[in-house]
Design a protein around this nucleic acid. Structure first.
Lengths: 146, 146
DNA sequence: CCATGATATATATCATGTTAATTAAAACAT
DNA sequence: ATGTTTTAATTAACATGATATATATCATGG
């Protein structure tokens, strides 16, 4: 997250970068990118929270659901697809299990491996939450955000 | 932060959004924005961590430093300028005080108010860290990121 | 076979974000 | 002038990210 509400003016950036080395307009574009994305993330997080979800829980379910040829992923595969650390995946998994949104099954051949699949309820919750998620992104991109 | 490493294909987005309601390309642009910003934030956080800083501590100093006509801000003014909650500002302030990068002075007329100013060392650290910060943003924007 | 190393997952601890509640002082309306 | 409300800052409790460490199981060389 990028927490600066008012981005520096071009002049300010110039004075900080000392008129050389980096192009102030490029920096300004970068800061704008950061701020814009941060505001969108804030909106998405608020949306997820209203639905008893979090960004991460949502993405966790998505990566399982979007797998076309299988209906489960191992914990390691989920960790590969999400840019968070293993422990966070483990904790998120526990929460989703507690909520009955996924199942965990130990592999038959290698008992270190757990296969995680969506429950029908997990799939339903995902389906229910998706349209609003897309709506928020689309509104932000169209400049229709609140 | 947006944690999905591989963005969904246009086809996937279509299948989720049901071919109506939202434009898949717009959604894809939004997700690209989120992911790009998240990767840049990761790089910036790593840079700050290497210098014993954090994104927030850095911005805290910046908002004081960039004030043109004064050399201090109140805690409330800092909170207004940063998109974080008051308690986080209070805690960050304590850390910066401990590190000797800012000073805290109680207002003479209204003893609820604290004026926060940079110490010379705070200003030095800020000056030292800024070029690398701009460099990372510029490289990312120019597609020169690692 | 079985000690050693590699791999898959989980736990422990810490950092840093949030909201709710607290403290202290000022402002204001009788 | 004094009780009530508002404001400024902080503390308390909790959520969720990270890294380092532990546990359990598998693979493999002697």
């Amino acid at each position: 997250m990028f927490f600066l509400k008012d981005l520096p003016t071009r002049r300010m950036i110039e004075s900080y970068s000392g008129h050389y080395d980096t192009d102030p307009d490029t920096i300004r574009d970068g800061l704008t990118l950061l701020r814009r994305a941060s505001l969108l993330i804030r909106r998405l997080d608020a949306y997820f929270a209203r639905h008893g979800f979090s960004q991460l829980r949502f993405l966790f379910l998505i990566v399982i659901d979007r797998e076309t040829d299988r209906d489960s992923l191992t914990v390691g595969e989920i960790t590969e697809r999400l840019d968070v650390s293993g422990p966070v995946v483990a904790r998120t998994l526990r929460m989703l299990l507690d909520d009955g949104l996924v199942t965990k099954m130990t592999d038959e051949d290698d008992s270190r491996i757990r296969h995680i699949a969506l429950t029908p309820e997990g799939r339903d919750r995902l389906t229910a939450i998706l349209p609003g998620y897309f709506r928020i992104i689309a509104d932000e991109m169209d400049g229709k955000a609140p």
